[in-house]
Amino acid sequence: MTTTSAAPSRRPRSRAPLTGRQRFANFSYRATPYVYISPFFILFAVVGLFPLVYTAYVSLHEWSLVGGDAGWNGLDNYASVLGDRKFWIALRNSVSIFLLSSVPQIIFALLIASALDTNLRAKTFWRMGVLLPYVVAPVAVALIFGQLFADQFGAINNLLGTFGIPPVRWHVDPLSSHVAIATMVNFRWTGYNSLVLLAAMQAIPRDYYEAAVIDGAGRIRQFLSVTIPGIRPTLIFVIITSTIGGLQIFDEPRLYDQFGQGGSDSQWLTLTLYLYNLGWDRFDFGKASAVAWLLFLVIAIFGLINLLLSRRISTEGTR
């Protein structure tokens, strides 16, 4: 497509004094842009910003889903959440599942992207192929993988058995359950992210590679010193979005077994699932709101760490 913008128009404009009608036209001309962008701001204020701020208010009250506001109780909700062992387990699980899903996912996405970033036959076929899992809803993924990872005679354990590996207790051991849940996330998002990275790779000028080849760099060396630096901004973008999403994971742990409580010992209870259980199973909106704010804090901290790390990487990169 032709992507150009024109130089300013040179048509002469009339300088006659404005009539009332023109003045109105002028006003509406100025107001129009604000009208056009207002839907987003109104909606964001009502269903985004206001609830977030109001969550803080609710978190300082004793508040039941059924009975409503039962009065101010200061920081009691926070104290009780922070004193609850389940909160800390949920924090551990969220971080663990997030790491298990984002680190391998980005590595695999990079590998797939660089495999796609070649002169393939049937390019579109391969690209569509890796994207297929993206259209399967997380709920469906969770139902399918929940069965693949069944403890007794599940398909994966059966497969392991044929190699003489004893069955893994996917629904009992915390780390195993995290691996299973992270696998669901990876299944759905790896292909998507490899296309994102592929696009970035294709924007790297070919002569960089040529220069590297002249310097005697092999494939791996090229990948590390040309490809990776070339896609750095995109890579940082992928990492940050997967942080924000990964720490709020809910669908997969909720449906990992039929009870939805995160396991008999909260093995795969995540913070969002904990929030849900407090709010809509225990009907304690006060505590649920406290968890929401704490989770907000956790995400902010991880976001900050990401930002600092990526800043350092990018300054090192530019040298």
Partner: peptide, 23 residues
């Protein structure tokens, strides 16, 4: 305003579910 809109993408509005539910 455009910068503001882009910045809101990083806000986990999902965490406002309790008041949204009350609403």
């Amino acid at each position: 305003l455009l910068v503001f809109i882009v910045a809101t993408m990083a806000v986990p509005t999902q965490l406002g579910v309790v008041p949204l539910y009350l609403l």
